[in-house]
Computed example of a mutant assay.
Amino acid sequence: MTPPETTALTAELAHLRGDFAGFGRDLGEIKTACAVLVERSNRTEKDLGELEQRVAALEKSRWPLPSVAALVGAAGLGLGLWQAVGR
């Protein structure tokens, strides 16, 4: 006959073994979730780099609108003065 302490110890060890098995499964899920987050982070960094390049290209190729506006204004002023003096 087995002493009650041995039976209780065996039951407790079986319970702990089940807890550790569940912990390993949970740890695997955590590792998977972390891997997904790292992949998303890498993809976001890549997209951000591409976006920065596109914005830089647009900034380089945009029209110099303030300069054009100043030239049109000066031309309008010149024509206005020419008409006023010419009449």
Score class of each variant (00 low, 15 high):
44 T>H: 07
48 L>K: 11
42 N>F: 03
20 F>C: 08
21 A>K: 12
39 E>R: 15
56 A>V: 07
24 G>P: 00
39 E>W: 01
33 A>H: 05
52 E>T: 07
26 D>Q: 11
30 I>H: 04
51 L>S: 12
54 R>L: 15
27 L>E: 06
35 A>M: 05
44 T>F: 05
37 L>M: 13
55 V>G: 00
35 A>W: 01
26 D>W: 04
54 R>N: 08
47 D>V: 10
33 A>W: 01
59 E>P: 00
62 R>G: 02
22 G>P: 00
32 T>S: 14
30 I>A: 08
21 A>Q: 14
43 R>C: 06
60 K>W: 02
61 S>H: 15
30 I>R: 10
24 G>W: 01
28 G>H: 02
24 G>V: 03
63 W>E: 11
61 S>R: 15
63 W>P: 01
67 S>L: 15
65 L>F: 10
63 W>K: 12
25 R>G: 03
48 L>H: 07
39 E>Y: 03
54 R>S: 15
20 F>P: 01
53 Q>I: 09
27 L>N: 07
45 E>C: 06
66 P>A: 09
63 W>H: 08
40 R>N: 11
58 L>E: 12
51 L>N: 11
52 E>L: 14
53 Q>M: 13
62 R>L: 11
25 R>Y: 02
58 L>H: 12
36 V>E: 03
48 L>I: 06
50 E>P: 00
43 R>W: 03
48 L>P: 00
40 R>T: 07
52 E>V: 11
44 T>S: 09
55 V>E: 01
38 V>E: 02
47 D>N: 12
25 R>M: 06
34 C>R: 06
64 P>I: 01
56 A>N: 11
48 L>E: 04
29 E>P: 00
29 E>D: 11
21 A>G: 07
54 R>G: 02
57 A>D: 10
49 G>L: 09
63 W>R: 14
45 E>W: 03
36 V>P: 01
65 L>D: 09
50 E>Q: 11
26 D>A: 13
68 V>C: 03
